[in-house]
């Protein structure tokens, strides 16, 4: 889709993710340097471009891989873009934008003291690193596992770790935040999340197709019933429009198109999970069945990083900013 060769390899490596031991799975992607894909080699990354990173995010979604694969890559991209080293991300990590009221910075004799309380950070784990992006302070701060205070950890509906970040430490790795980095970060994150959702959507479609072909009722496969076939069609329509939205965001590289993709992703996620479950019947509700690994992710991801509503509002503000339909037309056609 974004890089077909990588897609095939990634599906190979990530197949069986839901049953794998997560440490082993993480080691195998680290061995391939995948968590640092999309980050220049000159900055310690694995090279490759955003298309490669999106392909990996989609693969992680498709295979419901319980590792912070693209999340780490995004955090690494922030560090590299800010001239910082990637060491804190050795065992994975995340980047978070923290608003003023959650963070206090104080210059002290020994360096920059960071006092922070950021609730509900997905993929915050005792072993992982955190990249704090602080817009008002104009700083980027890299924190390793040792810097994290006593945090409370839980999980979201997809069983992904979620932690409240509680900090009081002296930051060693600090850089100025390039003002242009913030929208670029928001765009990159929106596209990566959309690609991950797309992957999960793809998996829902393929699992549902298999199921409605195999399962017989009324003496025929379910797919022979028109209502069932049309439900399947509606799922693939969501897959289609989301694929196109992400591709457009990738090609254009603007914050507007990335948020548009994110808005589409959020609405597709719910529709696809709903139809997939409906067509799987009771079997799809069981722990034993694989479907929940992807549908629970779709539910969690709909409002992760930013909510879908936020993305819609942001796109709305953008198109209402100009006069007439200037911005709306520019956003959709790329031609003023």
């Amino acid at each position: 889709m974004f890089n077909d060769d990588l897609r095939a390899i990634a599906d190979d490596v990530l197949a069986g993710s839901t049953e794998a031991d997560t440490d082993t799975l993480w080691m195998s992607v680290v061995a391939l340097d995948w968590p640092l894909v999309g980050v220049p080699e000159s900055s310690g990354g694995a090279g490759g471009d955003l298309a490669d990173a999106l392909e990996l995010a989609a693969a992680a979604g498709r295979n419901a891989s319980p590792i912070p694969l693209w999340e780490t890559g995004l955090a690494a991209w922030v560090l590299a873009s800010s001239g910082l080293g990637l060491e804190v991300l050795q065992r994975g990590g995340v980047a978070v934008v923290a608003p003023d009221q959650q963070v206090r910075l104080e210059s002290s004799a020994t360096g920059l003291r960071v006092v922070a309380r950021v609730p509900a950070v997905t993929w915050l784990r005792p072993a992982g690193g955190v990249v704090l992006v602080l817009p008002s302070a104009g700083r980027v701060v890299a924190l390793g596992p040792g810097d994290l205070g006593p945090a409370s950890f839980s999980t979201n509906v997809a069983d992904e770790p979620v932690g409240d970040l509680v900090l009081d430490c002296t930051a060693e790795q600090v850089a100025d935040l390039d003002p242009a980095l913030l929208p670029a970060f928001e765009a990159r994150r929106a596209l990566l999340r959309s690609a991950a959702i797309l992957g999960a959507v793809e998996r829902c479609c393929s699992m549902t197709l298999d199921h409605v072909r195999d399962r017989h009722q009324f003496g025929k496969p379910l797919i022979a019933l028109q209502a069932v076939a049309h439900g399947l069609a509606d799922m693939t329509l969501e897959r289609r429009r989301l694929t196109s939205a992400v591709q457009e965001g990738l090609d254009r590289g603007s914050l507007g198109t990335a948020l548009a993709a994110r808005a589409v992703a959020g609405s597709s996620a719910g529709t696809v999970a709903r139809i997939a479950h409906q067509l799987h019947g009771a079997m799809g509700i069981t722990r034993e069945h694989q479907l929940h690994f992807v549908t629970r992710r779709l539910w969690a991801w709909t409002d992760q990083d930013v909510t879908t509503r936020y993305a819609e509002e942001a796109v709305g503000r953008l198109v209402l900013a100009g006069s007439g339909d200037d911005e709306l037309w520019a956003l959709s056609t790329d031609g003023r």
Binding site: L242, A263, R309, E312, E313, V315, G316, R317, V319, S332
Partner: peptide, 21 residues
């Protein structure tokens, strides 16, 4: 109005993907 902005935004996002198609 916030809700109107959201709804226009949701349509604009859909328009981006339709146009790409």
């Amino acid at each position: 109005d916030r809700a109107v902005t959201e709804r226009i935004g949701a349509l604009a996002a859909r328009l981006v993907s339709l146009r790409r198609m």
